[in-house]
Design a protein around this nucleic acid. Sequence first.
DNA 1: GGATAACATGTTACCGTTAACAGACAACCG
DNA 2: CGGTTGTCTGTTAACGGTAACATGTTATCC
Lengths: 336, 336
Amino acid sequence: MSTIGDVAKRAGVSAMTVSRVINNSGYISQETRERVEQAIAELGYVPNALARSLRFKRTKTIALILTDITNPFFTTLARGIEDAASEQGFSVIFCNTDESQDEEAEYLSVVVQKQVDGVLLVPASSSSESVTFLQDRGVPCVVLDRRLPDVAVDTVRGDSEAGAYRLTRHLLDLGHRRIALLNGPSSVSTAEDRLAGYRRALDEAGLSSAARVYEGSYTVEGGYRTAKQMLGDTPRPTAVFAANNFIAIGALRVLREAGLRVPDDLSLVAFDDLPATMMIDPFFTVIGQPAYEMGQRATQLLLEHLAGQSPAEPQEIVLPAQLIVRRSSGPPPAEI
Amino acid sequence: MSTIGDVAKRAGVSAMTVSRVINNSGYISQETRERVEQAIAELGYVPNALARSLRFKRTKTIALILTDITNPFFTTLARGIEDAASEQGFSVIFCNTDESQDEEAEYLSVVVQKQVDGVLLVPASSSSESVTFLQDRGVPCVVLDRRLPDVAVDTVRGDSEAGAYRLTRHLLDLGHRRIALLNGPSSVSTAEDRLAGYRRALDEAGLSSAARVYEGSYTVEGGYRTAKQMLGDTPRPTAVFAANNFIAIGALRVLREAGLRVPDDLSLVAFDDLPATMMIDPFFTVIGQPAYEMGQRATQLLLEHLAGQSPAEPQEIVLPAQLIVRRSSGPPPAEI
DNA sequence: GGATAACATGTTACCGTTAACAGACAACCG
DNA sequence: CGGTTGTCTGTTAACGGTAACATGTTATCC
C-alpha cells in the first residue's frame, strides 16, 4: 500500500502538497493538482485513515454492542443503525454479547482501545458498570432497548410497560381471567417493565392475585421451560403472554406437544413482531416495536452528541409500541 | 483519555517502561510493575489501538460487506462471522450495500482507508471490480455466497446448482411437469446456478422445453411481481420454485390473493430456510444452506490468510445444501 | 578483582498524516 | 519603487505507541 510520501515523490512535490490536493485545502496550482491526481491514480493510493484518526482523535466509527444480532428485533435495529450511520459517513463495528456481562466488558474494552467515537449499547444487565466505564473515558454512549436505573445516560427504548399493559388488557377484554406471563430475566429492564404493565392491567381489573409469573430467559429454550412449568400448574391459565418472540415460539412448542390448540384452548400473545418479509402467515397477536426507527433515532442522537449539538442533559426517548391483533388470541374456552 | 505518557509521568518512569508492563515484554522489576499498574488503574488508562495499528500495520479488524443484514440467511452468516472473528480477537465492521454496486465500491474505499486487515464480501454483482480493487491494494478478501467468474479469489458458498437440482427433482418425483422458477437477478451467480440446477433436472426428465423462468429480484416485491406474471400465463404451472425465501413470501401472497391453496392447488418450494427460532409452523419445503457454518469457514479462511498460513492458490469451498421436505409441496392436482 | 552476563530502565526514531509556520514569487497599489 | 496582498509550496512537529539501541546497575564467575 502506497503512502502520501510515495505519491509526493512520484509527482515531484512534498507530502504536504499531496495532502492539500486530497483535502482540497489551501492553494494549489492547476498544473500541480493534475500531476498529483495522476500519481494518486497510478499508484491506486488510498489515504491511511489510522494516521488521520490519530491526529484528529476521531475515527468516524461507532460500536454497536447488542446481545444477539440473530434476534430479528435486533437485526432490524442494527439495520436502522447502519443506515443512519453510513449516511453520515460513519462505520459500525458490531458485537454479540449473548447477554453475558463479561463479553460485554471485553468488547467495550476493545472498542474503546480502537478509539470508536461512540457506542450504542444494548446492555446485558441492569448494571451501570459498562456505561460508567465509557463515561470515565469520555466515550459518548446511547443505551438502546433497555433502561439503566443507576446512571444518567441517553436512552432510546420502546414502551414496554404500556405495551405489556395493552397486551394484557386485550386478553382481559376477550374475557380471560387466568393469564400467565412467561417473562425474561428480571435483571433486564424490559422484563421488569413488561411485568409492571401486566400487573397494572390485572390490578385495574381487580385481579392482582391472579398474576402468574414465570421467569426465564429471552430464548426459545427459556420459553419452552417456563411454558412446561406453567402447564403443570393448576388451574391452567387460559391465556399466555410471552415476553418476547423467542419465548412465544418455545411456548407454542409446548402447547403443541400437549395437544392444545391456539387460540381455541389457549390464547398466546407476545412482545415483538417479526418483519413482514419473513412471515408466511401472520398468526401471533403481538406488540410490535419500531425497531428500525429505534436504531435510527439512537444513532442520530449519538451523532448529534459527537457533533456537540446535543443538550447536556441525558435524554430518554421512549417510542410507542403497537398492538397488532391476529389469530393467536381469542375468547377463553367455555368452562366445563 | 490518558496516554501512555500520562501513565509514565504518574508512575515516575518512561513511556517505554509502561509499554513493557502492558505488553509483558522485556525486564521489569516487580516494584516498578506494581507502580505502573497502579497508575494505569488510577487513570483508567486504555492503550490507543490506532497508534499501535499505525506501527504494526494491522488493525485486528475485518470488514463484512453484504447486501442486507435483514435477510435471515445473511443474519446467520454474519453471526457465524462475528463469532469466529471475535474468537481470534478480531472486530467486524458491517456494511449493507442493498445490492448496489456503487454502495459496495463506496464501502470498500472506506474500509480500505480504515486499514482493515481483510474483507468478507458478498458481491452485489458478478463484476470482478471490487475484488481487483482489494487485490491491487494488497487487502486479503474472501468472497461469500456468490461466485465471481472472472477473478481468482477465495470463495465460500453453498451448492446452489445441486440444491436447485434436488429441489426440482423433488417436484418432478411428486409428479409435477409444469414447474416455474421465480428467479433472482441473472447478474448474481446464485440465480445463475439455481437456474442451471433447475434446467439439469428438467433436462434429465426430458422436459427441457417445459422450463418456465421468471427473472426478478431477491425480494418480496420481486417474488410478488414474477408470481403475478406467472399466474397470467397458461397453462398454469402446478409447482413453483422460488429462488430464495423472500421471493417465496411474495409468491405466497399472490397465490393467496388468487385463492389458490398450497400445496393442494399448487406446490411452492424455496431456496433458503428460516432459523428454527423464528418459525411458528415450519411449512415450506426448502433447500437449507448452512449459513452459520459458511460464515465461520469464510472467516477462518480469511484469518489463516492473514496469519500467512494459507496456500497461495485461491480456494473454493462449496458447502452442501440440504433438502427439507415440509408441507408446501405435494402431488399436482388431478387434471380436470 | 576484573570480565561477563543478567537485569532494569531510558532515548531515539518511526508508522502516515496534517496544522502551523515559513519562505518565495507575482501582482497590485499609492 | 517599497510595501502589501495573494498564491503556491515546503519544513517541522505532533498525534500515541514501540523496536532497536544505549546505558547503567547488580550478581556471578574464574
